[in-house]
Nucleic acid binder design. Structure first.
Length: 284
RNA sequence: GCGGCGGUGGCGGAGUGGUCAAUCGCACUUGACUGUAAAUCAAGCGCCCCUGUGGCUACGCAGGUUCGAAUCCUGCCCGCCGCA
């Protein structure tokens, strides 16, 4: 967040004849622009971007869909003889491409989920233990969302296998390192700018176009708190304060994900990144 | 000036004689992650020794009562409300 990755991606694409693939779980939705910090047409500077605006906001999108669409996109880019550049902050989505795990084929079961939603973690855990004791051993037993999905998988086709990774592509991972204080300031400045550009109006517009307040809660920080502000639960000042805090928390969670990626190459400036890519592409 | 209410950890806010370093929420720090991932979940969060049924300092300030006080009493300081 606010590290300058979109901008870097475009520069790399220019320099190395590439196209950009977004790895962002909110920018996949059409119409979520200001609130997600989506790159604008102008900022793209003619570089083709993929995996943006591929889903309607009311419908839930997920990693498996992301994985599938991305493989298509990458195939197309390679066929055109170009370099695919994945850029984004959703660790899970990045790993969906880089590690290419084959997710259990059990498809989300809305009815089952609704049924389990109000059960306590303890009962969910008991259910899972019966269905898939091995999984129960290693799962986070306090986390209803994980428990429900695990049950979903077990019900569909018995005990789950360990997740296999089958990487398809040779990848270079670049992490951008920004000093925390600097990042904090940048985050806030960016938020204020987006507010001036009409972020709240965007939320309002989405709602009039049929996105429920309930759904808004799930579409990302800006939409969640923006909606609360519009409903009068937050003052403008409170909106700004809680959003800065929440965005910062989110940014930290991103970092904990990236920190554990094994071969990530950390860069503090564009030159370092450029050099990395040059060396990487020289191998082919 | 008189009367009422209140001052608790970074913030909000419990507790009203012992089991209180003090419920809880937020913020903060660290981490997990098998189709919601900007989601969901976990741990830590006065100071020190970092072994424990450990030591120290704490609930506006200063005294007092008590075996024992954030909790009771007195004085002072500060805030809000009502009457002047």
């Amino acid at each position: 967040t606010a590290s300058g990755k979109s901008d870097l991606a475009v520069q790399l694409a220019k320099k190395f004849n590439g196209e950009v693939i977004s790895a962002d779980s909110r920018q996949v939705y059409k119409g979520l622009d200001l609130g997600t910090g989506k790159i604008t047409k102008q900022e793209m500077r003619g570089i083709r971007h993929h995996l943006l605006d591929v889903a309607p906001p009311p419908k839930q999108f997920d990693v498996a869909q992301y994985q599938k669409l991305t493989h298509h996109a990458i195939a197309g880019i390679l066929k055109r003889g170009k370099l695919p550049i994945v850029c984004g902050g959703t660790g899970l989505y990045i790993s969906a491409i880089v590690d290419n795990p084959s997710y259990p084929s059990a498809t989300p079961d809305k009815r089952l989920r609704a049924q389990l939603e109000h059960k306590s973690p303890a009962t969910l855990f008991a259910m899972l233990k019966k269905l898939d004791p091995a999984r129960a051993q290693i799962i986070d037993r306090n986390n209803p969302r994980r428990l429900i999905r695990a049950i979903e998988i077990a019900k569909a086709h018995g005990p789950a296998e360990a997740l296999k990774k089958n990487p398809l592509y040779d990848t270079l991972l670049i992490g951008i390192r920004v000093p925390p204080e600097k990042l904090k300031t940048a985050l806030r400045a960016r938020l204020l700018k987006r507010m001036r550009q009409g972020m709240v109006q965007e939320v309002k517009r989405l709602h009039t176009k049929g996105v429920s307040w309930k759904r808004m809660e799930e579409l990302g920080l800006e939409y969640r708190y923006g909606a609360r502000y519009l409903r009068g639960e937050l003052s403008k000042q409170e909106l700004i304060e809680t959003l800065t805090a929440k965005i910062w928390q989110y940014s930290r969670r991103q970092m904990t994900w990236f920190r554990k990626m094994p071969n990530i190459r950390w860069c503090t400036n564009k030159q370092q990144a450029m050099r990395g890519v040059r060396m990487f592409t020289a191998r082919y």
